[in-house]
């Protein structure tokens, strides 16, 4: 009886076996990495906007308070995007003829709002109340990163459910005094943060991690 297979097939067969084993593990690792990479989460990815607005310039360099434009952040469920009027309150005076701001002037003229691309867009099945987070001592920078250093706006955090849970499970590791909410540079060493955090949890009546991770807290 003649040989059916070439001797090299032994090596090929063994390689296939190992390849299959590594293939399975590799696929899982790939899947894991992909779902957390900017491809999926858009962290650090700049969105194309109708107007190239720089938070770095307005907030960082000029020092305009967050609340000047996002007026409802503290009490509303939704941190609003300012209407064209807010922009024009300054830009009717300065850079009034800048070609970069033409869409803003057009919007004012036509009454059609600017169509900003939302950078932080949670899915509809996740209930999110912006005001409560501010009231309980979550700083802007905790979720939005150093906006004052962003020439164009991007997501600083992945906004995945596991990321949300990270804070909901241990709120004390992220809370800060209400007076420091809008302070972009606020940070404490870990031990001190835990101490302060625990005090704030008590003071602000923040619920325990167990209740904050109930399904119905976010999925109502």
């Amino acid at each position: 009886m003649p040989q059916i297979f070439h001797p090299a097939m032994n090596t090929v067969a063994r390689l296939t076996v190992f390849g299959a084993a590594f293939g399975v593990v590799g696929t899982i690792v790939l899947f894991y990495e992909y779902s957390r990479s900017p491809f999926q989460t858009e962290v650090n990815v700049v969105r194309e906007q109708p107007v190239q607005f720089s938070h770095e310039h307005h907030s960082g360099q000029l020092g305009i308070d967050c609340r000047y434009c996002h007026t409802t952040v503290e009490n509303g469920p939704f941190a609003n995007i300012p209407p064209t009027h807010t922009c024009m309150s300054c830009h009717s005076q300065i850079w009034a003829d800048s070609p970069m701001l033409k869409p803003v002037r057009d919007s004012l003229a036509s009454g059609e709002p600017l169509r900003w691309e939302r950078v932080h867009d949670l899915p509809d099945f996740a209930y999110f109340e912006h005001g409560i987070h501010i009231q309980k001592g979550v700083g802007c920078a905790s979720c939005h990163g150093r906006v004052d250093e962003m020439p164009l706006t991007w997501k600083a955090e992945p906004l995945t459910m596991e990321w949300c849970l990270d804070c909901h499970r241990h709120p004390e590791t992220h809370l800060r005094p209400r007076s420091e909410i809008f302070n972009m540079e606020y940070s404490l060493p870990e031990r001190e943060q835990n101490m302060v955090g625990k005090r704030l949890v008590r003071e602000y009546g923040v619920q325990s991690g167990y209740y904050l991770t109930n399904c119905t807290v976010c999925h109502r």
Partner: peptide, 8 residues
């Protein structure tokens, strides 16, 4: 079970 971003 797989390590998903929902931590579920």
């Amino acid at each position: 079970p797989y390590p998903n971003t929902m931590d579920l």
